[in-house]
């Protein structure tokens, strides 16, 4: 099953990249995520491993994932090592300046399932999809809220500093 969500954020891709590439921040903006823990030697970048869990229905589902693509500040993709099969990707694309400055289109994709689970596996994927989609959408809304809030505060600080000088 492939589920995705997208949103536009009033910030440059570099700012958003700071957030999505930092495992410590996932619990603060990802909806339904109950664990996003560093499991290997590296905290970030290609080859970094995380133990992930998302509450869906009656269980917390996830497993060990590894970052397999890390192209700052554009693409971050992971794939599962253990647990359910999953493949996820952040896609950050600049869409030119708006009236508030630079804007970025943020896309979050997640493919999941259990190979070999047969027809019931397929049904379970369909049944889980709305909950997973809702989690992705909420995560993006929270990401936008946090990034834009930080942007606004940074801008205010700059203005204050300029006024003082």
């Amino acid at each position: 099953m492939r589920v995705q969500a997208a949103i536009e954020v009033a910030a440059p891709p570099e700012t958003i990249w700071e957030l999505v590439s930092d495992p410590a921040r996932y619990l603060h903006f990802m909806s339904g995520i109950t664990r996003w823990e560093i499991a290997g030697e590296h905290a970030r970048g290609l080859g970094a491993r995380y133990r992930t869990l998302m509450r869906v229905g009656s269980a917390e589902i996830g497993g060990l994932v590894e970052i397999v693509e890390c192209d700052a500040p554009r693409d971050l993709a992971w794939t599962s090592i253990s647990g359910i099969d999953q493949r996820g990707r952040w896609r950050l694309r600049e869409i030119g300046p708006g009236h508030l400055g630079e804007r970025t289109r943020v896309e979050l994709r997640l493919q999941y399932g259990v190979a070999g689970a047969g027809i019931l596996g397929w049904i379970a994927e369909q049944v889980a999809a709305p909950a997973v989609r809702k989690n992705l959408r909420r995560s993006l809304q929270e990401l936008r809220r946090q990034v834009e809030h930080e942007q606004a505060r940074a801008a205010a600080a700059t203005r204050r500093a300029a006024a003082r000088n």
Binding site: V56, G57, S58, A59, V114, A117, A124, V127
Partner: peptide
């Protein structure tokens, strides 16, 4: 383990839809 893994979706369906299971504090 492979058998368990492949039967997880069926178990999940039953536990989530029929019993609305909720497990806290694992």
């Amino acid at each position: 383990p492979d058998f368990i893994r492949e039967s997880l979706p069926a178990q999940w369906l039953l536990a989530s839809l029929w019993f609305r299971g909720e497990v806290r504090g694992l």
